[in-house]
Structure formats: C-alpha cells, structure tokens
C-alpha cells in the first residue's frame, strides 16, 4: 500500500460536510484563492513541505455518473476530498501542520463533520487517521527531490544560464570574480540530493521485499538460484 514515492508522501483525506455548509465553504475557498488574500496560504508556503495539494468539495449530485446502469449516489453529506503530496513522514507532516498553522487548518476544514480542531494534536491525529484513504499506486517524477529541491534547482538553472551567457567572453580574472559572485548568489542552493532517509520502517520493509522478489525473479530468469526471501526489518 504505497503512500510513499521517495521523498513524497501521498495523503488522501475524505471528510463529510453538511451540504449547506459545503456551499458556504466553497465561497470561503473562493476568497482564499483571490490573490489579495494570498497571505492566508503563507504558512503553507513557508512550511514548504508540499509539492502540490488540492481540496475538492463534492456535493452529492456532483459524483460522476456516466450512464443509467450506474446507481445515483444518495448521500447525506457533501464530501471534502483532500489530496496532498508532502515531504517527510506522516507524523512529521501532521505534527508540523497542527503546531505551525492550526488556525489555517481550522479554516480549511471549517465545520467538517467530526473535525476536532487542529490543536490538541492527539484528537487531530485520530481524525486524520480515521478519514484517510490509502493509495494503491503512487508515482513521483523525482523521488530524490523534495519540493525545496525542485525550487532550488530552478534558481540554480536560472542563475547558471544567465551567468554562462554573461561571462562568455570575459577575461579570466573578471570571470573568477563573477564566478565567486555566482556562488554567493547560490549559496543557499549548493546542497545535494540523494534518496530519502527512511521515514517508515514498515514501508522500508515492503520496499526491501519487493526488491528481493524482483531480484529473485531476475535470477530465476537467468537460471540461477533465487535469493533469500523475507523481510529483514521489524516494526
């Protein structure tokens, strides 16, 4: 059940809202979307743990119905679908959001049925866990990059290409000075990437078993003995 693709973690949270409340919340979200109120998402931007995230409020009539053979959904509630791609472990994400931007979360999940508020943290943890849906297949185009790395890489590319064209015909001494200035400009972007540290022992064990199974498969294909099977980690 992979919720993890390298440095990215997929969270899916589906929570009920009274239908009339949902109509109101859609207006509230509309307000949040307006550039003039963009400060309301400043906490999210500063946390910088998210690649992309979305909220979709779906009224009972809005569930896709493709033909007559499909029964019409009859639901008491509207549902808020939240899908997020974040960096770090589940607990880190939930902890950080609860502690850093509780008022923001209380706004984004305003009057969702059963929403306990973002603080205290234990009821909030339980609410998220209770309403979370597990991902079956998760793909990231850059498992070794956090959103911070993607943004940093963009700065590097821009600075580097501008530097390259600017210094093309420079004298060596002037080039050296310009290069030092480039490093100064990019000093917060000189870290390197590598695979994620293990954030979940269970997930690491699953991945290790898959790897071993794949190897065993390869070896069987080439006529050699299969590798030892079985996980080596215990939770």
């Amino acid at each position: 059940m992979p919720n993890i693709a390298g440095k990215a973690f997929a969270m899916n949270l589906i929570t009920p809202i009274e239908r009339w409340q949902a109509a109101f919340n859609k207006i509230q979200f509309w307000a949040i979307r307006q550039p003039i109120l963009s400060f309301s998402l400043r906490g999210l931007v500063t946390l910088s743990m998210i690649h992309y995230a979305r909220w979709a409020i779906v009224q009972p009539t809005e569930w896709p119905r493709l033909d007559e053979s499909q029964p019409k959904e009859k639901l008491h509630y509207a549902y808020q679908l939240f899908f997020s791609n974040f960096n770090g472990s589940w607990a880190q994400y939930v902890d950080s959001f609860s502690v850093a931007i509780p008022s923001g979360l209380n706004l984004l999940w305003f009057r969702n049925v059963g929403w306990p508020k973002a603080v205290p943290e234990q009821p909030f943890h339980r609410y998220v866990e209770h309403n979370e849906v597990w991902t079956s297949h998760y793909y990231s185009a850059y498992p070794m990059a956090a959103s911070n790395d993607v943004k940093s890489a963009q700065r590097v590319k821009q600075a580097l290409t501008s530097f390259a064209s600017r210094t093309k015909d420079m004298e060596a001494a002037a080039f050296e000075q310009a290069y030092n200035e480039l490093l100064n400009e990019l000093q917060a972007d000189l870290s390197q990437m590598a695979p994620t540290p293990i954030v979940s022992l269970a997930n690491a064990a699953v991945e290790e078993r898959m790897r071993q199974d794949a190897e065993a498969g390869d070896e069987q294909d080439s006529g050699r003995a299969p590798a030892m099977m079985g996980g080596s980690h215990a939770e």
């Binding site: 919340n25 859609k26 979200f29 949040i32 979307r33 998402l41 999210l44 931007v45 910088s48 743990m49 998210i50 690649h51 992309y52 995230a53 979305r54 909220w55 979709a56 409020i57 779906v58 809005e62 569930w63 896709p64 808020q80 679908l81 984004l108 185009a141 850059y142 070794m144 990059a145 959103s147 790395d149 993607v150 943004k151 940093s152 890489a153 963009q154 590097v156 590319k157 580097l160 972007d189 390197q192 990437m193």
Partner: peptide, 26 residues
C-alpha cells in the same frame, strides 16, 4: 471533479525543465 482550491508549493515548469534543473543543481 472540479478542485475547490489547488495549491502549488513547487514550480509550474514543464517536467523536462524541472528534471534538467535537478540534474544541473546536482
């Protein structure tokens, strides 16, 4: 289904650009 709010905490360049950037950064 239509999103009520879509949040971009990363960049919005074509993927090929993002990947090239990551390569160059490293």
């Amino acid at each position: 289904v239509e999103n009520t709010l879509y949040f971009n905490g990363s960049t919005d360049e074509p993927l090929a650009e993002q990947l090239k950037n990551l390569y160059l950064k490293q």
